[in-house]
């Protein structure tokens, strides 16, 4: 894990790129590491809040990783959890304030879930497992990679829930143009309700593990 003692390497060396791409599939925070599901699923009724949520998590995770990584040699082990929590909480408060100021409509939809980024296990998990022991640049990449891994699951779930639940994508009534409603198609109200988010994630995991057999759990 430790990159510290090696000679200077290129910014986009293959090893660093892995930090970004691994979390997208093999080490996906949601479907493989089982982190950060808590707040993820509740905001996936529509695409727009899901994207804003992803961007917020990306910003918080990347900055928190860098800050903790910069501070890593000054933090006393006894207070490290508190320091991590304070850094995360402050960043989340900033994001919340900025959303309230510049994306008011979305911030209303996200309501308490912005605050819940604080307890998003991805954050604590990455800070503890990666940023505490690595230099700022790899930490930044690691943060971005994990946030993107989180984001694509969120966006896929939100896409299907919005398409089948409300017949729209990003608010545009796409299904209306296809004329499906005339032949008797109806929006599936179940997709809007919370349980379907879990089932969709279950199906994503199924497909992912079917394609990537090494992830299958032992009995």
């Amino acid at each position: 894990m430790s990159v510290e003692k090696q000679p200077k390497e290129a910014l986009f060396a293959p090893k660093n790129m892995k930090l970004i791409f691994n979390p997208l599939n093999k080490e996906n925070p949601i479907t493989v590491q089982v982190l950060g599901i808590c707040s993820a699923l509740a905001v996936t009724v529509k695409l727009e809040p899901a994207v804003v949520m992803s961007i917020s998590v990306l910003a918080v995770l990347a900055f928190a990783n860098v800050i903790i990584s910069l501070l890593r040699n000054t933090i006393a082990p006894r207070i490290r959890i508190i320091v991590q929590l304070v850094v995360i909480a402050s960043l989340v408060i900033l994001v919340d304030q900025i959303l309230k100021a510049f994306a008011y409509e979305v911030s209303k939809q996200l309501s308490v879930f912005v605050g819940l980024i604080i307890t998003n296990c991805i954050l604590m998990g990455r800070l503890e497992a990666f940023a505490m022991g690595n230099k700022p640049w790899p930490s930044l990449l690691d943060g971005i990679g994990n946030a993107l891994g989180y984001a694509w699951i969120l966006i896929v779930v939100a896409f299907f829930r919005e398409l089948f639940g409300s017949g729209t994508i990003w608010g545009f009534p796409v299904l209306e143009y296809t004329g499906l409603y005339h032949i008797g198609y109806k929006n599936n109200g179940l997709m809007i309700l919370p349980p379907m988010a879990l089932i969709i994630v279950g199906i994503i995991i199924w497909i992912q593990r079917y394609r990537n057999r090494e992830l299958i759990e032992n009995k």
């Binding site: 000054t74 933090i75 006393a76 207070i79 508190i82 320091v83 304070v86 402050s90 408060i93 900033l94 304030q97 900025i98 309230k100 100021a101 510049f102 008011y104």
Partner: peptide, 25 residues
Amino acid sequence: IYSSVMVIIVAAVLSSAASLLKPVQ
């Protein structure tokens, strides 16, 4: 000392952000 400095920095950053953004909100 570490925690006090941290608290002061955090408090300064957050309250200035809050008061800066308040009019827009």
